[in-house]
């Protein structure tokens, strides 16, 4: 099978696919093998002194406003990400699987894109398998990421039904790993 040099592939692609492929490759460089990508984490970090979640009120890519204050009583996974961020892209399918598995038991997922516009995010979602069915919010000026003291992407937080931030995950995470799910189950309704 012919394998074209990656720089030729990148130059031959329109801007968005080129970025996705080439920066994905940037994230993978090492030996060039997928097995050498930095591994996604399989654990979540419990926050010892939970504090109330910062405000989060943003529109999604369909123009619908979401306010985390309206989600009291549910467990909420808030994920800060961007389309160009390789570990963000790698972890997103696991968030969708987690959402499918636990939504009926009280889990909400809010994925907050940092600094990009609706066209960029919309074009990206069509490439995911499975595609996300949870809301994709737009933090176009990154003010929400700053309010939540995000320092790098991806960063995720779990907000308990009382509105406190109880768990965080810095860096790409396999959210539907059994160990991660085990940490969430005590805060969800029983099946």
């Amino acid at each position: 099978m012919f394998v074209a040099p990656i720089d030729r592939i990148c130059k031959g692609l329109p801007v968005l696919p080129a970025l996705l492929l080439c920066l994905g490759t940037v994230g993978a460089v090492g030996t060039g093998a997928a097995a050498d990508l930095p591994p996604l984490s399989h654990r979540l970090t419990v926050i010892e002194d939970p504090a109330p979640a910062p405000p989060l009120r943003l529109e999604d890519i369909d123009g619908v406003e979401h306010d985390i204050a309206d989600l009291k009583g549910r467990l909420v996974l808030v994920n800060f990400w961007a389309t160009w961020c390789p570990p963000c892209r790698r972890e997103m399918p696991s968030m969708e699987r987690l959402y499918q598995q636990l939504n009926a038991r009280g889990l909400t997922v809010l994925a907050v894109d940092v600094g990009e516009d609706v066209d960029t995010v919309f074009a990206f979602t069509g490439q995911l398998d499975p595609p996300p069915t949870f809301p994709l919010l737009l933090d176009t000026d990154s003010s929400a990421a700053q309010d939540w003291d995000v320092k790098g992407l991806p960063t995720s937080f779990v907000v308990d039904p009382e509105g406190r931030v109880i768990i965080r995950a810095v860096g790409g995470t396999e959210f539907d790993d059994a160990a991660a799910i085990e940490q969430l189950l005590p805060f969800l309704q029983k099946p």
């Binding site: 994230g27 984490s41 654990r43 970090t45 790098g152 992407l153 995950a169 810095v170 860096g171 790409g172």
Partner: peptide, 8 residues
């Protein structure tokens, strides 16, 4: 970074 955490 807690154990397991990272950035790129």
């Amino acid at each position: 970074y807690a154990p397991g955490e990272w950035n790129q």
